[in-house]
Write a protein that binds this DNA or RNA. Structure first.
Length: 907
RNA sequence: GGACGCGUAGCUCAGUGGGAGAGCGCUCGCUUCACACGCGAGAGGUCGCAGGUUCGAAACCCGCCGCGUCCACCA
């Protein structure tokens, strides 16, 4: 026995923890994950990984997305191993707000804040922080087996990347699409920065809705409703609907703002809903997005009463300046109360905006920011999706994308942070002239005055939008760009479809002339087992690394893919266990086969490894046919992003066909060391077939469960090549064999039926029950039936006797040795008969069997059969059935009825 | 307010026009010479509710109920 196989023999379990680190080492050392930038993108395959936050750590979403992408990458790497290059572009994102917030938190612990430190020192600290805590997530990707190109890791703040970002800014500014404007923005007091609409999260809350009476000049009054009384200090109008008869006479008059005394014009605007409250609306253009719009239409004043620090400004008046928003609300309500102006208060449930980043309540306020107009960018990106140059899978997300794109609004791209790409905008301190350029001008081009760079940085998503091409060296025409751009697929969760994916498509088309990928795959969202969102703050998170420790990376990958069938799915520990069981099963099946073959053939094994499959028996033909089917299915499922069926189909094949049936059927044809002689009895052919099936199965499974398959490949392949670099198996249609499939299907059913009968009569597990096979269609499988169902078959009256003597007689001694070679002159009488497809098994011995139980079983089966016959008869007699149903269906039902009646005969 | 997804066995989910399935859990039997992370056999379901289409509906259509997610500027 060879040394290698000997070593394998003692490993009765697949131990992921011991094997995985070494396999990762071998993969990385092989250079397989780093393709040379050769050829055209059309013949190569590439995926750009959604860059995780540089200081982040692996969560379940990453784990699923990595499993998806790695399955695609490994499949395509194997599939095109000789014709193309496969690259998984790796890198991390600087994640402006998130990273800055982490560092600020650490500073706080030292009693410092960033302003005390100063911008330069602070940014240095962030780089230090990143050097220390960054990149752990990339190590965690390796543990999952992700076959990224680790030799070329990108970062969105790298020099080259930053140059690309600057260039894009300048270019789009020159096109007039980037501009500066005073506009109402979502102000996040937590990070003291504006944030985009997409970073706002609405939460349902109950507040008090106050009804407040404002007097109107010359008598009368209006009553407005608000949940934010403190903003009334910034009111500059009162509005009613133009069609509202009740208030027609008020329009054009002035209301008097309580506490302040300002005179507010009463205006008419369509925005006001007549049926909400009194139909009278206070207008605060500086602190409400709708009021801002009304204000622009009517040229109203904008009075900012809330500042960027979240406190009331001097404009709010002496009594309130400096108070927080909440304090101001109480104070305003108390003051109004004293004046008797609060008409009513009621509980009111509504949506309140919060910052997705800092968790603080958003203050809409007017601020001078940089914006990007999106209409021109969106147009070709809409066409690309509508016309199918970019395909969104699953399809139903396409409409969501189009709806959003067709109603796209300007994007606020400036952030008041220090960590990020600083805008390449320079202001003259003397004349205010604005210069936008790749590098700082020496002096103002207009007046030669000093220039100062814009303090703001760009929204992180501005730089992420360039990801698929900036990582490959764009704007330079690098070989990498030529070889891998456009990429093939982008895999992501749907929550960043707008935030990121849409912007990549727009920027890609605008800047490179091509959409950055042809497919967008939106994977499932994994929820906590109880159906809630998986999140750290809720305590519902499950750590994928812990799961890998416990079950192995293959198990976690398999489990995640298997459970991710629809839009939202609950985390299923069972599916992970199923994956672990599969890895172990495959390991043991291969180990068993190799040890037996090695023992049986010795040095002949090598030849068998190379040999083509040589089916000798019906079960050989059957497994080869089934293998062909699963190979085609698995490849098709991966290609259409149907990972759950790819995973579960693999499981079913390995358990339900390969191990439970084929290996059990051929066990006896694989003699152990002691039982061998040098005769050619078919062992060589069996070894060739078995090894072929195992090699193809293991190779097929590799993209899904790379570790166990790579480990097994060391034993299945003598060349020392890594499986990760081998070609993907092809389904060979010449091995399809419908006849073998039919024969085995009925035999498997028969075995199961007899086993069930045995169990019910209390036959001992190892006991061979003497029986006679009276059934057609078991010519080739009768002895398999006998062995797997533990029957000692008597030859008399056996209708299936045309067994192949070459293949069967030496292998299975049951056939002729049933009665110890002394069949009595008179055929024994059956004590029970078990129906199987095509006939019966007549049981001849009653030794130790509980025939009473058998009788009860028989009666129960008969009842069931009668009910079934009645059902089918009813169906055939149903008016219209025979006339309208397809002929094949009618025929099928008739055949079934005949079969059921035949079974009834036997019972 | 709009959109999408999901309600099938105790749990997690396949099945999407003609015989109700898997994994886990449960029951019974097995240390059968690959695997006890195993093997064999079972029990368990008015397929959310109510209509409609059809010879026939778990599946297709309409409505309702429940759960989840995304989008949206009603004070």
């Amino acid at each position: 026995m060879s040394e290698r196989i000997k070593e394998l023999e003692d490993r009765t379990r697949f131990e992921p923890a011991q094997v995985e680190p070494q396999i990762v080492e071998r993969w990385l050392a092989s250079g397989l994950f780093h393709p040379e930038p050769e050829g055209e993108a059309s013949e190569n395959y590439a995926i750009a990984i959604p860059p995780p936050n540089v200081t982040g750590s692996l969560h379940m979403g990453h784990a699923l997305n990595c499993s998806v992408q790695d399955t695609l990458i490994r499949y395509n790497r194997m599939k095109s191993s000789s014709t193309g290059r496969t690259k998984w572009i790796l890198g991390t994102d600087h994640a402006g707000i998130a990273t800055q917030a982490q560092v600020e938190k650490a500073l706080l612990a030292e009693g410092l804040n960033r302003h005390e430190l100063g911008r330069e020192k602070f940014v240095e600290r962030v780089w230090e922080w990143q050097a220390h805590y960054g990149g752990t997530i990339v190590e965690q990707f390796k543990r999952l087996g992700a076959s990224c190109d680790y030799s070329e890791e990108r970062f969105t703040l790298d020099q080259g990347y930053a140059r690309a970002v600057m260039q894009v800014f300048v270019r789009l500014y020159e096109k007039g699409w980037i501009y500066r404007d005073r506009y109402i923005v979502n102000w996040d007091p937590g990070s003291r920065s504006a944030i985009s609409d997409l970073e706002v999260e609405e939460r349902r809350e109950t507040d008090t809705l106050y009804s407040i009476r404002y007097d109107v000049e010359g008598g009368a009054s209006v009553t407005i409703a608000t949940v934010r009384p403190e903003t009334m200090l910034g009111d500059t109008a009162v509005a009613v609907h133009p069609g509202d008869e009740r208030y027609r006479s008020l329009v054009g008059r002035k209301a008097i703002l309580p506490l302040v005394g300002r005179h507010l014009p009463i205006i008419a605007d369509d925005y006001v809903k007549m049926d909400f409250g009194t139909g009278q609306l206070k207008v605060t253009p500086a602190h409400d997005p709708n009021d801002f719009e009304i204000g622009s239409r009517h040229e109203l004043d904008q009075i900012s009463v809330i500042g960027e620090d979240g406190r009331m400004t001097a404009e709010a008046g002496e009594r309130f300046a400096g108070l927080t928003v909440m304090e101001a609300r109480e104070a305003v309500v108390a003051a109004l109360e004293r004046e008797g102006r609060i008409v009513a208060r009621e509980d009111y449930e509504h949506e309140v905006p919060y910052s997705h980043r800092s968790g603080q309540r958003i203050e809409p306020l007017i601020s001078l920011q940089w914006f990007m107009s999106m209409d021109e960018l969106a147009r070709p990106a809409i066409t690309a999706v509508r016309e199918g140059q970019v395909r969104i899978v699953p399809e139903n997300h396409q409409r969501v994308y189009l709806d959003w794109m067709e109603n796209i609004r300007p994007w606020c791209i400036s952030r008041q942070l220090w960590w990020g790409h600083r805008l390449p905008v320079y202001y003259c301190e003397t004349c205010g002239h604005v210069t936008v350029a790749l590098s700082a001008p020496e002096a103002c081009s207009e007046c030669a005055g000093h220039v100062r760079q814009e303090a703001d940085v760009l929204d992180t998503w501005f730089s992420s939008a360039l990801w698929p091409f900036a990582t490959l060296g764009w704007p330079q025409a690098t070989p990498e760009l030529k070889a891998f751009y456009p990429t093939n697929v982008l895999s992501t969760a749907r929550d960043i479809l707008f935030l990121w994916v849409a912007r990549m498509i727009m920027m890609g088309i605008e800047l490179t002339g091509e959409a950055p990928f042809s497919d967008v795959y939106i994977h499932s969202v994994i929820q906590a087992p109880d159906g809630r969102r998986m999140s750290k703050s809720l305590g519902t998170g499950i750590d994928p690394l812990q799961e890998i420790d416990r079950h192995g990376a293959d198990a976690v990958r398999f489990g995640l893919l298997a459970m991710s069938s629809t839009q939202d799915v609950r985390y299923s520990a069972e599916k992970v266990q199923q994956g672990q069981a599969l890895a172990n099963k495959l390991f043991n099946a291969t180990r068993f086969a190799l040890v037996r073959i090695d023992a049986s053939l010795g040095s002949g094994r090598a030849a068998a490894v190379e040999a083509q499959p040589l089916p000798r028996t019906v079960e050989d033909r059957w497994i080869l046919s089934r293998l062909t089917g699963i190979l085609a299915d698995t490849a098709a499922r991966i290609e259409r992003y149907d990972f759950s069926h790819a995973a579960l189909g693999l499981y079913d094949f390995v358990y339900g066909e390969l191990c439970d049936w084929y290996l059990e059927m051929v066990k006896q044809r694989l003699p152990d060391l002691a039982g061998t002689d040098s005769e050619d009895d078919g062992r060589q052919e069996l070894a060739a077939t078995l090894l072929y099936v195992l090699r193809e199965t293991v190779a097929m499974a590799h993209p899904l469960i790379p570790f166990v398959t790579e480990e097994l490949w060391r034993y299945l392949d003598d060349t020392g090549e890594l499986l990760a670099g081998c070609p993907y198996p092809r389904a060979r249609e010449d091995l399809l064999d419908p006849q073998a499939e039919t024969e085995l299907a009925r035999t498997i059913e028969a075995v199961t039926l007899v086993r069930g009968w045995r169990d019910s009569v209390g036959a001992r597990a190892g006991q061979f029950v003497t029986a006679r096979l009276c059934a057609d269609g078991y010519e080739l499988t009768g002895l398999l039936l006998a062995r797997l169902a533990r029957l000692q078959l008597l030859p008399e009256d056996q209708r299936s006797h045309a067994l192949d003597p070459v293949d069967r007689s030496p292998v299975n001694g049951v056939a002729s040795g049933a009665g110890g070679g002394e069949p009595s002159a008179a055929a024994p009488t059956a004590v029970a008969s078990v129906p199987i497809p095509g006939g019966t098994v007549e049981v001849l011995s009653e030794e130790g069997l509980d025939l009473g139980a058998a009788e009860r079983r028989r009666k129960a089966a008969k009842q069931k059969l009668l009910a079934e016959i009645e059902r089918v008869e009813g169906k055939l007699e149903r008016p219209g059935f025979v006339e309208k149903a397809p002929a094949a269906v009618v025929e099928g039902e008739r055949e079934r009825l005949a079969r059921l009646r035949a079974e009834l005969e036997v019972l």
